[in-house]
Nucleic acid binder design. Structure first.
Lengths: 208, 208, 208, 208
DNA sequence: CATGAATGAGGTTTCATTCAT
DNA sequence: CATGAATGAAACCTCATTCAT
């Protein structure tokens, strides 16, 4: 948890710092990410980071927590997640190019978290508790609505679902990050097309 | 590419060094991996590593190349990959607990490569040429045998396939690595069961 | 060029660091000079050196630049170099035991630069532009004043002049450095005598 | 002194080794010179160097000794040094482009020796004893022949003489080494012209 | 005696973290 | 609370020298 000092900052400044950190972490991974780069990008002094966070690790973990919260909030504004099934969720949340466009780095960052050995445990504790919970909720919703097979264990279904959707996200996110591509109409169209196919495969696989 | 010196070593010693390196890389990731640990585990002097490889990075990249080769060789001994379809491949190669048991670390290592920003490109250049080729071959075989839908683009199908199977591999690999679990009968049974389900989802999704 | 950080230091501290470096470089040459020795002598942490300079090489090159500037400044205080002829310059600048006493190491260091293969070019680029210019100026002044033969090319004359004066400087500088001799009256007298003779040889050679 | 083993080698091989060493020393200085480079260039194994010489330092010092001997021998073949005066020596020995062409590196190397702090003492002991001796001999000869002023101390004259001739040598040697220039007719002509002027300055300075 | 792989001490460089201003 | 210079532990890498074959 950040220090009190951090929470006393204006919300915008907090966000600036976190986004600067996430940018650096995505770009170089945890180890190679430099605190000084983060500070420079955030427009603050290196020392200030340590006024806000105990150390780099704590900063990282808080970024994870914050990312998830932001992402969920964005999602919630669009639709009520508590009632969505997995396919709706996919279409609304991940597949919306608007979300992707606004939050490329956050989404990428969230995928990358599990890639940091030694940080997985604490950060995922913060995140995956939430993810797993809402994931299972989605599966439950889907079964209740009768859009998903009920003869297969929830965990398996969730795994299968996450596998396909994460892969899909990664492919597109990385494409955008690498090329610093704007999301053009053609790109958007191509993505939508691919998404439709993935969704079809998903549905055939796990749907009724 | 390693230096000449490395290739002049006895094959066993080469393997010892590479496996020591892979072990360290899997355990700590590229940055935190210490050359001195690798050397100690391989039973050689730190300096020797630098007789064999230009630097840590080159060692890493060669590990990637070597891992893929080893893995493919093991696979080839079991069945003729040139004629397999994707489902057979999954069952024979990835799903065989024997392979997993023997080569846990190699498999994990290969999955982890994409987690190292800056190393992905060069490592995958070494690996992907091969992977993509054999991946597309598998898809082609599958379509020819009539076990896979022909109405969807090869790339999409491959992506879908890799998403599911990699996720599956990861879950189980990590489980084994973390607990340093031996593959007990129960574990094996549980894995087989899960694999069967995944395979079913896969088949329903992309199969005819 | 040093990093910004260096120039933000107080002038005295800058000088302390540079003199510590020059001391070490003169004592051991570039390769054997240890950054840690420099830091210790300057009373700062080893890491600080790297806050100021990119690496040891950049430090060396900046020492070269700085040395020349310091030396020229000292000289300028005594007399107006822009109007001196070569013989006046020799007597005022090089031959003054006061200058030598104060700036032994700087002078030695400047002579030594040409002994570092690979560093010569970049260091001298910084220095020689200045030196050549002021050297040619001296020759020009001398010709104008009619104290030097006009029938010989400037370059040749400058070379001849530098040869004799540098050799002279070297002999005495090294003597002082080696013995860590104070400049006693006897020494001073001996030096003056030798200087007078060298000057005579110089004058007969190139003078009118 | 080299080990016995070295002297048992065929003369040509001895020379190959020494020239390889000198080449490397001239190119990089003592510290940066790599034993392995020397061995490779000499076409022998790195270990062999250590069969011949105690260590790199001993090799360096022997190179110094050998260089001087070679150089003197070449000189002797042209004229009898024991009777030359300084001007004759300059013209015959240093100024002959043939010598320079054949023995660029040796000549450069000899100049560089005094640039290696820590090696100066032992190597110069071997060399400068000789040089100083023959230098003084030349001065004596010159005084006896009446071509040089007798009212100035031998040491001063020698210093003056060495200053001018060394500077001259250095300029031309480095030019040839840097550009790997062949000694073309134009170059040779330019050098001769410059030499004539230097000689004139020298003569006017110290001559009667 | 030749070879070249093995060694490891020693040095440079990095960068998270601290701390004085 | 902000700043950014200072710190030094820790890691990479080099290469002279040794040594087994």
């Amino acid at each position: 948890m950040p220090k009190e000092t951090f929470f006393r900052l204006k919300d915008e400044k907090q966000e600036t710092v976190l986004r600067a950190a996430i940018h650096e972490f995505v770009k170089h991974g945890f180890e190679r990410a430099k605190v000084s780069n983060i500070a420079r990008k955030a427009g603050i002094a290196k020392g200030s980071i340590y006024q806000y966070f105990e150390d780099k690790k704590e900063l990282y973990i808080y970024c994870a927590e914050w990312s998830l919260r932001i992402f969920m909030e964005k999602l919630d504004k669009r639709a009520n997640i508590t009632e969505m099934d997995v396919f709706e969720y996919f279409e609304n949340g991940v597949g919306k190019s608007k979300t992707i466009d606004e939050e490329r780095e956050i989404i990428i960052f969230m995928q990358y978290i599990s890639r940091e050995p030694g940080l997985i445990a604490p950060s995922l504790k913060a995140m995956y508790n939430a993810t797993e919970l809402y994931g299972k909720r989605l599966i439950q919703n889907s079964k209740n609505k009768g859009v998903v097979r009920v003869d297969i264990d929830d965990d398996i279904l969730l795994d299968y679902y996450l596998a396909v959707t994460e892969k899909f996200k990664m492919r597109w996110m990385e494409r955008y990050l690498d090329f610093t591509t704007e999301i053009t109409k053609e790109n958007d169209k191509a993505m939508k097309a691919e998404m439709a196919l993935m969704l079809e495969l998903l549905k055939r696989g796990m749907g009724c």
